[in-house]
Design a protein around this nucleic acid. Sequence first.
DNA 1: GTAATTCCTATTAAATCTATAGGGTTAATG
DNA 2: CATTAACCCTATAGATTTAATAGGAATTAC
Lengths: 138, 138
Amino acid sequence: MLSKKTKYGLKALTFIARQEGDVPVQVGEIAKGEQIPQKFLESILLTLRKAGVLGSKKGKHGGYYLRNEPSEINMADVMRVLEGPIAMVPCVSLNFYEKCDDCVNEAQCSVHKLMIQVRDSNLNVFKNTTLADLSFSG
Amino acid sequence: MLSKKTKYGLKALTFIARQEGDVPVQVGEIAKGEQIPQKFLESILLTLRKAGVLGSKKGKHGGYYLRNEPSEINMADVMRVLEGPIAMVPCVSLNFYEKCDDCVNEAQCSVHKLMIQVRDSNLNVFKNTTLADLSFSG
DNA sequence: GTAATTCCTATTAAATCTATAGGGTTAATG
DNA sequence: CATTAACCCTATAGATTTAATAGGAATTAC
């Protein structure tokens, strides 16, 4: 199940991408427009900023903006920030590999075999989908 | 993240598939062989039996066996039983569709768009992988 | 200097996952 | 037919994670 954090984060990114103006977009605006609890959204946007996806401007008339063009922001990066590793088990994670305690023989492990395929297939989707794909057109 | 329930369930199915004998496989055997808490495993196998994946024989010398050939058991069915819907959000689930409360326009929702692709890609993997693929050979 | 906004930490509330407990039911065996 | 070994079933406790809230600190426009 997709976490609310990720769901809200994706919606917020889309919302920002669609505001084509030059001024940063405020949390309150996004929260209202997308029906997201404002304080929760604050922490999510903060995470995205710290990860380098968003930039921010503080103080009055402050807000958030994209650090790159929507077409340059791919979902693999975004999902890793919001949802964590793309792999469903650490033993098939490319970026966060960890051996299973219980698993004796990784090469023969059925979970390992299946999850490698899932990882590859998801990675393929995420890498090839950009924020622009999600934000514009039908 | 893959739940332990699913992980254990997959390992157990593989274990049973690899026992080529005619006698049912006992929970205790699987638990020992795969390092799974026995009582937890019991409940998982019960779930798989109720879903029609496994059959069981009660009483002394009882145990579990596959209801179909490993090559006929596909992972889409197994994952639905163990992990729940394959879709990461209800609004893209084929078998368990539900509209989002918050989402005003499904067609324009970025989460919806992305998750449809993820669902299709995962479904493709799960439907085309059988228990035989996971159990035998390298 | 006041108002508006992001920034940061802590905490609580809710939900889910993992595991255990305890016994009921069924069947093989001598 | 008693004993034993296995699955069957429900409930519940413990642990972890997720979701949301609270309260203010720091920063900037005006």
